[in-house]
């Protein structure tokens, strides 16, 4: 308990030092259009929270994120199972997934605008493309790499077919799937930010963090740009702590250190 307190205190101290350095740099640069002061960024964040703009932007962004990610889960996991199970899927779809995973998914923003128009659907599609391949591949690897002895043991105990899939194969592949969920989230988060900047620019009034970044640019307000960037980083950290840490903790507790 005492140790955690000291850790938190030291961490806070470290952040204060970073902010102090920033303040120092602000004085040295002395150009408000290029580098804002920590205080002005703080002011911007405070005001945009009070006016409700920031929360509505976060809401819009997270709505897109969760819709696209949920679709990624919906498609990625079953397709991953299919690829693990049937060779022809592995050699086609699995191969394609490997290639597309390496493609920066913001590339999808251009066809997405063409297919869906400059709207939410286009951005959700980009998130889907950002997450689905990681999820597919990690499920495929997870299912293919489980120890065959689990399946043999289950069979001798009378498990077969769907029962084996639900109670043995999927739980055994779970650590790998969680790894893919985390990676898929990170890829999708990056691509959504890029997509919001690209897609939100010309038309839709759909609020989002990307749109706010654009406004900051339009207004020549560097405090707004940096403020939004800080919010994006904070959300990324928060999601990691809230969404993924509990799973990982559970895995480590149950599986021991071999769970990756």
């Amino acid at each position: 308990m005492k140790k955690t307190l000291i850790r938190i205190l030291l961490s806070a101290l470290g952040f204060c030092a970073i902010i102090a350095l920033w303040q120092l740099a602000f004085h040295l640069v002395d150009n408000r259009t290029k580098l804002p002061s920590p205080f002005s960024v703080f002011e911007y964040i405070k005001e945009s929270i009070l006016s409700g703009v920031l929360l509505s932007a976060i809401k819009g962004t997270l709505m897109r994120m969760f819709s696209g990610y949920a679709m990624g889960l919906l498609f990625g996991i079953p397709l991953g199972v299919l690829c693990a199970r049937i060779r022809i899927f592995r050699d086609t779809l699995g191969m394609l997934a490997l290639g597309l995973q390496a493609l920066p998914s913001v590339c999808w923003a251009i066809p997405a605008i063409l297919w869906f128009g400059t709207n939410n659907s286009a951005m959700i599609f980009v998130v889907l493309m950002g997450s689905v391949w990681s999820l597919l591949l990690s499920t495929q690897h997870g299912v293919m790499n489980i120890s065959p002895i689990y399946i043999r043991a289950a069979r001798t105990m009378g498990s077969k077919g769907l029962h084996t899939w639900i109670y043995v194969i999927m739980p055994a592949a779970f650590p790998s799937i969680v790894g893919g969920m985390k990676q898929g989230w990170a890829f999708a988060w990056r691509s959504l930010m890029a997509a919001e900047i690209v897609v939100a620019l010309p038309v839709s009034k759909a609020n989002g963090l990307g749109l706010q970044l654009n406004y900051g640019n339009d207004n020549n307000d560097i405090a707004q740009v940096i403020g939004i960037m800080i919010v994006i980083v904070a959300i990324g950290l928060l999601v990691d702590k809230i969404l993924f840490s509990p799973w990982e903790k559970m895995l480590r507790k149950r599986w021991g250190l071999d769970a990756k």
């Binding site: 105990m157 498990s159 109670y167 149950r254 599986w255």
Partner: peptide, 24 residues
Amino acid sequence: MMFQEHALFPWLDVLGNVMFGLKL
């Protein structure tokens, strides 16, 4: 059948493992 490697399921605790065959 009992194997050389224990073949226990790491996602279940001791009770859960012993229950696996019983549940069927």
